[in-house]
């Protein structure tokens, strides 16, 4: 771990008392694909700890791009660049001393399509620990139980931990992916439309789970479903054409939006 991250741990309690400045602070952040095509324009967001923040907006408005910038998943794409800064507990994630691997350990991610590895359920959950070189059987066993319990999957799979993860149902797979994301005890969990491929029952389970998880984790969720955003999130950001149009408490956004575009979108007049 790099010096700046250890620093982070020490200052965490301090940061949490300072509710106004969020755990994630996005400052004048712009993002460009192919060097020129701008996808995000001067985003400024303060995302509070231990709350669920949802990003809503029509397709192609940049919400996923922003989400994937927070754990630097966009590094994988060639010819991209950014301006501005994203800070987690006051430290820039783009700082040259930041190790992207430890960043991703602190910022877990759940994807739109559930993507378990073709391994056993057990191995899926502890993948993050395995790559971190943890071999202690006891730690691994405990992590598996804790993570699967947190992901509300334990009772369903505890008798077949060593069976292939690919034999699970769609909803179970997505919860397994959540268990995998929380196994390495991140601070933040990013969810990129986690329910878009699931049926309503599975969606309900994931939403319930998300509400449970916010006690321990800061959650950012990208969603296309306005109902979902209003059901589970504490704060909501409405994105349009690469800009944050409105960012407020979910209740305010849905009952009394300040911006007419927001109102049009959430009432279904466009998007």
């Amino acid at each position: 771990m790099t010096a700046s991250l250890e620093n982070t741990e020490a200052t965490m309690s301090e940061e949490q008392t300072d509710a106004e400045k969020g755990i994630i602070s996005i400052q004048d952040f712009s993002f460009f694909y192919n060097k020129t095509a701008q996808a995000l324009f001067d985003i400024n967001l303060e995302i509070p700890a231990n709350q669920i923040t949802s990003f809503i907006g029509p397709s192609g408005c940049g919400k996923s791009t922003l989400l994937r910038s927070i754990n630097r998943m966009n590094d994988l794409i060639h010819d991209v660049r950014h301006e501005g800064d994203i800070q987690i507990t006051g430290n820039s994630i783009f700082h040259r001393l930041i190790d992207v691997i430890s960043l991703r350990k602190r910022v877990g991610m759940v994807f739109q399509k559930s993507n378990p590895f073709p391994k056993s359920i057990y191995e899926n959950v502890i993948f993050g620990l395995r790559v971190a070189g943890i071999r202690d059987r006891k730690v691994l066993d405990e992590t598996v139980e804790r993570s699967l319990r947190s992901a509300a999957l334990w009772t369903e799979v505890k008798d077949r931990l060593h069976a292939s993860a690919l034999g699970l149902s769609g909803g179970q797979m997505q919860r397994l992916c959540i268990a995998r994301a929380i196994a390495s005890k991140p601070q933040i969990i990013l969810m990129d439309e986690p329910c878009s491929a699931l049926d309503p029952v599975a969606t309900g389970k994931i939403e319930e789970l998300t509400r449970e998880l916010k006690k321990e984790y800061t959650i950012i969720i990208v969603t296309h479903s306005m109902q979902q955003a209003s059901r589970i999130s504490d704060r909501t950001a409405f994105f349009y054409l690469g800009k944050v149009v409105e960012y407020d408490d979910t209740q305010t956004i849905f009952s009394n939006p300040a911006n007419s575009q927001t109102e049009d979108y959430i009432t279904g007049r466009f998007g």
Binding site: I101, K105, F111, N115, F127, R130
Partner: peptide, 25 residues
């Protein structure tokens, strides 16, 4: 699939670990 690579990287695996543990198998 791209999702598999991303999943491994998002779990904090390095590039070589991703290749060795997920992509090659």
């Amino acid at each position: 699939p791209r999702g598999t690579r991303e999943a491994a990287l998002a779990c904090g695996a390095s590039k070589w670990q991703t290749i060795q543990r997920v992509i090659l198998p």
